[in-house]
Amino acid sequence: MGAMRPGETSQQAQARAQRLRQHAARARGLAGSLGSALDTGVSKATADGVWYGPYAERVTGQLREKQRALEGLANGLRATATSWDQQAEQLETEAAAAPAGGN
């Protein structure tokens, strides 16, 4: 994905590039909320004096693991969004250089 497809017109390629950019922007928005989804809960659960003992330590440890996993997923989503932007740029470049009737 990214390069013009056989028989694709420059207008179709530009429309596809625009959709890629829209999806990339939406993915970045989702990544932001995904990456911070557990921040408040972890902060409250790990605050001084909230709770103590082995169960508290186990649960807060699991929360931190889930928080790191979500941040990893968010980073992956951001990387994918960057890839979509790069593909859109390539499509736009090829579309601008393509003959009027397609390639």
Rank of each mutant, 00 (worst) to 15 (best):
A31E: 02
A47I: 05
A81Q: 00
L34Q: 12
T80P: 00
G53A: 09
R68P: 02
L63S: 03
V50D: 04
S36C: 11
R64V: 11
G29I: 03
G49H: 13
Q62P: 05
R68Y: 06
L38M: 12
A24S: 07
A81M: 01
L63E: 07
G35P: 00
S43R: 07
G49D: 04
S43G: 14
G29C: 09
A37D: 05
A37H: 12
A31C: 10
G72Y: 04
L63G: 15
T60D: 04
L30D: 04
Y55A: 14
G35F: 00
S36L: 13
A45N: 06
A27C: 07
V59Y: 12
G53T: 03
Q67I: 02
T60R: 07
R64N: 13
E71R: 07
Y55V: 07
R26Y: 11
A47H: 03
V42I: 15
S43M: 09
V59P: 03
L70I: 03
A27K: 01
G61Y: 02
E65Q: 08
S33F: 08
V42C: 04
V50T: 10
L73F: 11
Q67W: 00
Y52W: 06
W51E: 01
E65P: 10
K66W: 09
D48L: 13
L73Q: 05
A69E: 11
R28S: 07
G32P: 06
A81G: 04
S43F: 14
R58H: 13
R26F: 09
R68D: 12
Q62N: 12
V59A: 13
S33L: 09
A69R: 15
Q67M: 00
G53D: 14
A81S: 05
S36H: 13
G41S: 11
A47F: 02
N75D: 13
R58P: 01
G49K: 03
Y52S: 11
G61A: 03
T60S: 03
K66S: 07
S33R: 06
R28K: 07
R78A: 08
A27E: 02
E65I: 10
K66R: 08
R58L: 14
R78V: 06
